[in-house]
């Protein structure tokens, strides 16, 4: 897709993979060595990367990114709704399971939407090569916030996880140099 794989990209990738290995091996905080959780996290990374590659292909073919984002979000939401309906547990989920967490889920949704708006504004003003590595600050923020609210999240502020997050952030910057 017109992108080169240079020394910085290889170094950055190795740094990110090393940070994951350190974090998984640290076995601190919250069920760190749950294999299903680790595999699901890696699958999520792979699928989201695949989604970005497909969207990029559509952009290269002449698609409009803003309309594309709208089509992607709407399609994702429709399929998500269909899966929920097919599972047949909407009323049960709303009445019982999610009742306790509805407030948290609502706040998470609003924050995610605000984050997307901030991302588009950043992309429009700074460009992909600056915005994408900056987005990789997420593991650091997630570790700090989850550790700070450990009473609710059950996650302790693990120093090794924080260091891993900083390494992953540095790796992300190297990839886009």
């Amino acid at each position: 897709m017109g992108e080169n794989l240079g020394t910085f990209q290889i170094l950055g990738s190795l740094l990110i993979l090393a940070s994951v290995a350190i974090a998984v091996g640290s076995n601190s905080g919250y069920n760190r060595l749950d294999p299903t959780g680790i595999i699901m996290g890696l699958i999520a990374g792979l699928l989201i990367a695949l989604s970005i590659a497909i969207a990029r292909l559509a952009n290269i073919m002449g698609g409009d990114p803003v309309s594309g984002a709208f089509i992607a979000y709407t399609s994702g939401l429709l399929v998500e709704a269909l899966i929920t309906i097919l599972r047949g547990n909407i009323s049960y989920s709303l009445r019982e399971t999610h009742k306790r967490y509805l407030g948290s889920v609502f706040i998470a949704g609003v924050l995610a939407a605000l984050g997307q708006i901030a991302r588009y504004i950043a992309l429009a003003t700074l460009g992909v090569s600056i915005v994408t590595p900056l987005q990789n600050i997420r593991p650091v923020i997630a570790s700090i916030v989850s550790g700070t609210f450990s009473k609710y999240t059950g996650e302790s502020l693990a120093i090794k996880l924080l260091i891993s997050g900083i390494l992953a952030f540095t790796g992300g910057i190297l990839i886009y140099l």
Partner: peptide, 13 residues
């Protein structure tokens, strides 16, 4: 596995 490690695993994207 918690938000910290999950977001780190996600950075492999």
């Amino acid at each position: 596995v918690g938000a910290g490690l999950a977001s780190l695993l996600l950075s492999t994207s």
